[in-house]
Amino acid sequence: MDPNQYCADKARQSGSSFTGSFRFLPPDKRRAMTALYAFCREVDDVVDECSEAEVARTTLNWWRGEVAAIYGGIPQHPVCQALAPVVQQFNLPQEHLLEIIDGMEMDLDQPRYADFKSLQLYCYRVASVVGQLSAEIFGYRDRETLKYAHDLGIAFQLTNIIRDVGEDARRNRIYLPMDEMQQFGVTADDILNARETDNFRKLMSYQIERARRYYRQAFDHLPAVDRKAQRAGLLMAAVYQAVLDEVERSGCHVLRERVSLGPLYKVWLVIQAWWRN
């Protein structure tokens, strides 16, 4: 199969809100973002789909070898074959792709986070790094845009964490900082057994406000000169912020159900954001 077609199929099968914004990009940047997204999905699937940690770890090490081959060899996997010309065209650092794999590997070793500082490293690796790679593909003139990409990545990952608390708990993972859970009187047992108490809702409101703060910080960092080039990220942000709003409207009902937006509503949000930006 053609490597770019493989990546397009992988992105389409994910059903992610991210991919909808790619259609607004020029063809070369659309292919680049699709290949980057497919890479992230592949390494994330290793951790989510392997039942044995050591098998997952071995597979992630294989992916590290594939990343090395992108920059100085002949990669075997179609995703890495699609990425090879992308990293040259957009000057994407090898260490950033390796950081993404390191972030995925954290899920094998760390199902809990003591505080937000420790969670930040995870968010940086699995999301901020992706944001900065995306910023390179979209293009920028002011390096302040990389700070925007960093904070927007954190905001996206915090939104995912908030939306997926129940889904993650069913994998025995809790990404809510343990010290904040203690502060609000919520135990790991409450999360794992889907007890949506008033304390849990207060804890989630606190998490939602932090995510919104990161969105505000990101937008404040984005220079006007790069706003048009980074428009695809702003379209994604419109959808993800709407997810936060929906979680809040639902009463933070995320332990038993996954809050989601309808496809037509997401299209409407993207069109609105396009005209605003």
Rank of each mutant, 00 (worst) to 15 (best):
I174M: 02
A169C: 06
P3W: 12
D151K: 14
I271R: 11
L119E: 03
R64E: 07
Q241V: 10
D164N: 05
P85A: 07
G262L: 04
N199E: 09
A169D: 01
I154Y: 00
E136I: 01
E105G: 09
P263F: 00
D164M: 05
R171Y: 07
G103Y: 00
A56W: 12
L264W: 11
E105T: 14
D48K: 12
A238P: 03
Q182G: 10
R112L: 14
D220Y: 04
E180M: 10
R227M: 07
L234P: 07
Y215L: 02
A84R: 15
Y37P: 06
V259E: 04
Y71C: 06
R141G: 15
D9V: 11
R23G: 04
K266M: 04
R12M: 00
M178K: 13
I70C: 06
D115Y: 05
K10T: 15
G103K: 09
C123P: 02
M1V: 09
S51D: 08
Q120A: 06
R276S: 07
S134N: 05
Y124K: 06
A84W: 01
V267M: 07
R57P: 03
M204T: 08
E66F: 03
M104H: 10
F18P: 10
S205Q: 15
V186A: 05
D189N: 13
K10H: 07
A56N: 08
T59N: 08
I100T: 12
M104E: 12
A237Q: 01
E99G: 00
S118C: 11
Y37Q: 05
D115R: 02
A194D: 06
R201G: 08
A68V: 04
A84H: 08
P111A: 07
R31Q: 13
I162E: 00
I271D: 04
A218H: 06
W274K: 09
